[in-house]
């Protein structure tokens, strides 16, 4: 297929369509996924092609939606359970953390739970403290769960397609502020492998590790740094489990400096884990501390000013990189 301009939302939708056409066992279940077309319209009109038996509108029962997906996956379906907001993940943590994540292990490898939990998170829509969080650390902290967080339109398509072929439960967290982002993509082009991070930019002075929407802020900051004469390598993780640490190590050893940028809160978050790993594994190569640029340890406000201030943005990333590279900039 030729190049086409697609939104992140359309790419996700296309991934669902292609997977459902290819595999009759793929079903979608969740709140408002059918007649309404999905709270963020990712499943718009899928019910027309695939019918209400495969695009299942559920009651507002998050624990049972995820629990039913667990049972469906064990019984031979490939369910995509949609959790409207990742903020509701706490409702489902028993089914996700105690059931889906542990069934293969507890049952001695007899069976896996090949389900995908599609959800979205993050700030950007003034949606308040219970609809704006970045809770990926909950998932990353639970062995047995895979975690994908696409930052680009191409990855939205390919990671979701790949998630629907994986043998283990995948939590797939989209970013609500990216749905309308457009890119020119060739969906037929060979994608990067699952579990492999993408080096979005290469530079000798600094490595910035990030994922999801923060990638775009990091790229914006990196462009400005380049104007200052600072060249950053930008690594987009794509999947947080599996975590491609080899790529991070390789680049950090070369540059000697690393920053981690994440929208989730600072304390005990994804950035904390990445920072600890870089510090442990690349200690001899580091010239400066690994700096975390992460969400503030506070709830998200409805006020746009407070909301924006609660999470990293291009300016904070840029300032942090300049401070880290201070001596070099001055020279």
């Amino acid at each position: 297929m030729a190049l086409q301009e697609l939104t992140y939302r359309d790419a996700l939708r296309q991934a669902l369509i292609d997977s459902m056409r290819e595999n009759p066992d793929v079903i979608i279940m969740g709140e408002e996924v059918g007649r309404y077309g999905g709270a963020y319209a990712v499943t718009k009109e899928l019910i027309k092609e695939f019918g209400a038996e495969r695009v299942i509108d559920t009651p507002i029962s998050e624990p049972a939606i995820i629990g039913a997906a667990v049972g469906a996956a064990m019984a031979g379906l490939r369910p995509v359970a949609e959790l409207m907001y990742v903020d509701f993940i706490g409702m489902t943590m028993d089914q996700l953390g105690n059931q889906a994540a542990k069934i293969r292990y507890m049952f001695g490898g007899q069976i896996g739970v090949p389900m995908v939990l599609r959800t979205q998170g993050g700030t950007g829509r003034s949606a308040g403290a219970q609809h704006s969080q970045s809770l990926e650390a909950y998932v990353m902290h639970t062995p047995g769960l895979r975690l994908a967080m696409p930052a680009t339109v191409s990855d939205a398509y390919h990671l979701l397609r790949m998630a629907l072929t994986k043998p283990d439960p995948v939590v797939f967290i989209e970013h609500k502020a990216l749905y309308t982002m457009k890119e020119t993509v060739d969906l037929d082009a060979e994608p990067l492998a699952w579990g492999k991070s993408a080096v979005r930019r290469e530079g000798k002075d600094l490595v910035i590790v990030t994922y999801s929407r923060q990638l775009h802020y990091v790229m914006e900051a990196a462009k400005k740094l380049s104007a200052d004469g600072i060249e950053a390598t930008v690594i987009d993780l794509r999947t947080l489990n599996p975590l491609d640490f080899d790529t991070i190590r390789e680049h950090v050893e070369r540059a000697g400096r690393a920053m981690v940028v994440s929208e989730s809160v600072m304390t005990a978050g994804v950035a904390a884990e990445l920072s600890a790993r870089i510090t442990e594994e690349c200690f001899d190569y580091l010239e400066d501390p690994v700096v975390r640029v992460a969400g503030e340890d506070i709830p998200i406000s409805v006020s746009t000013a407070l909301e924006t201030g609660s999470v990293p943005g291009p300016q904070l990333i840029l300032e942090t990189a300049r401070k880290l590279l201070g001596a070099r900039v001055a020279a």
């Binding site: 629990g67 039913a68 667990v70 049972g71 031979g76 379906l77 059931q99």
Partner: peptide, 25 residues
């Protein structure tokens, strides 16, 4: 046997999915 469970009620919703699968197939 889709599993015993140490979480009270934890195994109940799996039958919804298994029921959907039985009907689907």
């Amino acid at each position: 046997h889709l599993g015993a469970n140490a979480i009270v009620g934890g195994g109940i919703p799996a039958i919804i999915g298994a029921g959907l699968a039985a009907r689907h197939h």
